[in-house]
């Protein structure tokens, strides 16, 4: 019996049809094989919330959820995404209300320049989807692929912990402020 035909193929300058779900919406477009998911999201779909800092898988800024799993969009050729579901930072909230993670990042000062923030929040979402009561060690393990140059990571721990509480139906934690010399510490 003859081997079955290759189901999909394209020349180096031909575009391929890509049909996939982005933030719950079915999208269909033609893409060059050389384009990564990151490029298609930003350039073809105008979803510039997903950032990039290296395009080599070395910083985490381009993180998205691919079929619910944390993935780096800079490392995935878009043509490999047919039939899959992608969630980007734009898909985190449904309506005008911020997702609890977004609200917590805003309240706790976990976003300074905000450039690593979309990837960071998506990675945190991936964690909290599985473990809303994640410990600090579990947060570190899950977010260890996301580099941040502004925060020193501390407020990110605090924001993820606070959002995890909200997702478990508990009240959020108040933002931590520094102790003032000579005064009783306020906040936590």
């Amino acid at each position: 019996m003859e081997a079955p035909l290759v189901t999909l193929q394209s020349g180096p300058r031909e575009k391929l049809r890509l049909a996939f779900a982005v933030n719950g919406e079915e999208r269909e477009l033609l893409v060059e094989p050389y384009k990564t998911l990151l490029e298609v999201l930003r350039e073809d779909l105008g979803l510039t919330g997903t950032k990039h800092g290296c395009e080599l898988g070395e910083c985490g800024a381009c993180a998205v959820l691919l079929d619910g799993e944390l993935a780096l969009s800079c490392l995935v050729p878009a043509v490999e995404c047919g039939g899959r579901a992608v969630t980007t930072i734009e898909g985190l909230r449904d309506g005008p209300e911020l997702h609890p993670l977004q609200a917590a990042f805003a309240d706790h000062g976990a976003a300074q320049c905000g450039y690593c923030t979309p990837g960071m929040i998506v990675a945190a979402r991936w964690l909290l989807d599985r473990k809303p009561d994640a410990t600090r060690q579990e947060i570190a393990d899950a977010l260890a692929g996301q580099l941040c140059r502004c925060t020193g990571y501390q407020q990110i721990y605090e924001a993820v912990e606070s959002a995890g509480r909200v997702l478990r139906g508990l009240p959020p934690l108040p933002p931590v402020v520094a102790a003032v010399h000579g005064e009783e510490p306020h906040g936590r």
């Binding site: 999909l8 193929q9 180096p12 300058r13 094989p33 050389y34 990151l38 050729p77």
Partner: peptide, 11 residues
């Protein structure tokens, strides 16, 4: 942005 070179893709 760093880009992949062109290639023929088979699946």
């Amino acid at each position: 942005m760093m880009r992949l070179p062109r290639f023929r893709y088979l699946a």
